[in-house]
Design a protein around this nucleic acid. Structure first.
Lengths: 397, 397
DNA sequence: GCGAATTAGTCCATGACATGGACTAATTCG
DNA sequence: CGAATTAGTCCATGTCATGGACTAATTCGC
């Protein structure tokens, strides 16, 4: 076909083969032909090209189990040829995960949270990159890095990669993606950096590998001293125009008037976050709620079982449930995943939340409310998946 | 390439050519080659195939303006080879539009609303199909019909094509798509039928050809004695799991307790719909609000300029604005389109709505609030576009 | 332990397709 | 009226996928 369009078909078929190899694991050429529907010869040609490119590798030693016939030579995706990095910039800690081209984690680091506010964000992120570079040395160097995914506990604009606001990190309008990209560039590494909020990252992980696997339409409620949400509709993460979709915490609660960290009054967050419930309990009992080191407020509350706590928690649950019912009315999901410290919250809160959510459901069946199964690892895992997707999108993987 | 995959490339290229011809109008083969980037010969071959299939037609008589050189033979998409139908099942009227394969309306009918409740839905829809068949006779018969799009003033499940609830039509759980498909099948016409709510249809029309053209992320607020909304995110209409996404009218308003038509209490609709405002005004003034025949309640209210009307309208605007702010917080659109009878509502209502919406905006810039430009034709037009999309999706156009 | 059966993988001839350049056709312009 | 110009077709070439023939390397039954 001697032209530009010519190789389009080859590219598409190559893609199919690589995909099959990634999803289905090591396979023989004959098996690939069966699985993809392509002709044996076509597969052979494509695999040959992939072999010289180093994208796949022949597993000479390993034998597929055989029921007679010539033994198959297994071909496997070469997962250690390229890596992605994931960063979680969270409350109280920074996590770093390196995963291979199949998404399998190969390195994990967790460093306690430095007081970001005291140091310029550029410096903080440069340090993270230094650490990343160091880890990558052990497995082939930064050259093998293909993308970086970042989960930030705060409000993020995915399009620009800026963190608009992260009270818990002491950040305001920090160009996270740009700073990371620049720090990497100084080490001769030019890779895409994708940034999302913790709710979004967590939902991506729960959706692909956690509680919401296989669901087309899911929302996730997230608590980390603030209230957030993320939405997957028709299998796609909803970003919105400026990427700040899902901002449930700052929806107006009619009648409420408490000042919010965002500068306005009467936000849902002033009634239904960990700190809000703690204040209510302290007001009611006159006693301080003690938090262990780094412990989420909701967890501290759950440890006490005063009636005052139950009452305040139930009230917060009703508010959160109502706000969540706005969310589900708008997006009509079949499942609601509770994530972040919400899974640690007092039972009274979760019961009230589910109750309201079910009462306000319009659909035939109310959405299923479940707790996330990935725990506090959801956000980093989501960042890994984000990085993988991005690397594949720009054909660097 | 002698195989199945072989023609994939040809199909794709054919698609490109047809698309170009639809979007760009009549063009010469040489022009198509330039526009699509394909080789001249490739275009010639494809056009030849399309000519024998009757998909395109040579415009022998018409001359493209020339600056010298051999005159071009214009090739045009044959728009009258296939048609789609659009139905609007609205309050007080039923509309029927037949459009050609380019979406150009060729026939429009409007019949006053029969009291559906009195007759079985199957009968009502069969009558509409009879009318449709009759109109189609004049332009080649039902054989040329490729798809039907329906806009229903009520709650619709797009996946099943059922109308779950339409108080204004007196319908509850009516399988609109099935009934229409069956009625058409009885006349030997087997075509896909897609059904959406009025808000969704209107948004599709405003997004493609109206006030929201070119916007990636838009929501539409809709009033027709009830309150609804529709969402386009990243250029895609949001349906949700059961297709009922955007149900703003039945979100819970904390503190409100009035009984709603949906069977629950405290819905936004009980405070911010035309009927709700009318009741408030009548309570305040002790006088009935008069409606002209078929006139939306909001329009009737707008004709009066008592302070009581202004006050009640402003209050409704604040409620609606707050509910809309939940919607925009969740979906982060750049534009909000007001549609349905909302554009007829008293100024005080719209002012209050915009005010609240801007106050509660989290983004750098609040979303742009605009009135729909397609007026009450938006819903049918959306149904036409739905039918076109469906027909193209299933390759019947 | 040996041939039949079986499965993997390659070779090869064929057919579809896209393409660039040569070539013909039908104009306009000077 | 011929040169320049543009449209469209013809043709040789190269890429690609494919099915069937063919070779290779096993297991299984006897």
């Amino acid at each position: 076909m001697g032209g530009q369009e010519a190789s389009a078909l080859r590219r598409a078929n190559t893609r199919v083969v690589v995909e099959q190899l990634r999803e289905g694991g090591a396979t023989s050429r004959a098996g690939l032909a069966r699985d993809t529907g392509l002709a044996k010869q076509t597969v052979s040609t494509i695999v040959a090209a992939l072999l010289t490119d180093g994208v796949v590798r022949e597993l000479g030693s390993v034998r597929a189990e055989s029921g007679g016939g010539r033994p198959a030579v297994l071909v496997a995706y070469a997962a250690d040829r390229a890596f992605v990095a994931a960063l979680e910039l969270g409350v109280g800690r920074t996590r770093l995960v390196i995963a291979d081209a199949l998404g399998e984690p190969v390195q994990t680091q967790e460093v306690p949270h430095e007081p970001h506010a005291a140091r310029p964000a550029a410096k903080v992120l440069a340090d993270v990159v230094a650490r990343l570079a160091q880890v990558m040395e052990g497995i082939g160097g930064l050259v093998l890095l293909r993308a970086v995914g970042v989960s930030v506990t705060g409000l993020v604009q995915p399009t620009s990669g800026r963190c608009v606001l992260a009270p818990n990190l002491g950040w305001r309008d920090v160009p996270v993606a740009d700073l990371l990209r620049r720090a990497l560039a100084r080490r001769g590494c030019d890779v895409p950096v994708v940034v999302r909020g913790a709710a979004q990252s967590s939902l991506i992980a729960e959706h692909r590998e956690g509680a919401a696997t296989g669901q087309r339409d899911v929302v996730l409620l997230f608590e980390d001293e603030g209230v957030g949400a993320a939405i997957i509709e028709a299998g796609r993460l909803l970003d919105g125009a400026d990427g700040t979709a899902g901002e449930l915490g700052h929806c107006a609660w009619p009648g409420a008037d408490a000042r919010c960290g965002c500068g306005r009054r009467g936000c849902v967050e002033t009634l239904a976050s960990g700190p809000a419930v703690r204040r209510a309990v302290e007001r009611a009992t006159g006693r301080r709620v003690r938090r262990r080191d780094g412990e989420p407020t909701y967890a501290a509350l759950a440890r006490r079982d005063d009636p005052e706590v139950a009452e305040a928690a139930a009230e917060a649950g009703r508010v959160l449930g109502t706000a969540a019912s706005w969310l589900t009315a708008v997006t009509a999901p079949r499942m609601v995943v509770l994530s972040g410290s919400l899974v640690l919250a007092p039972v009274a809160l979760r019961t009230a939340l589910v109750q309201v959510l079910c009462d306000r459901s319009l659909a035939d069946a109310p959405p299923l409310v479940v707790a996330g199964v990935l725990g506090d690892g959801a956000a980093v895992r989501g960042a890994v998946l984000l990085a993988l997707d991005e690397a594949r999108r720009v054909r660097r993987l």
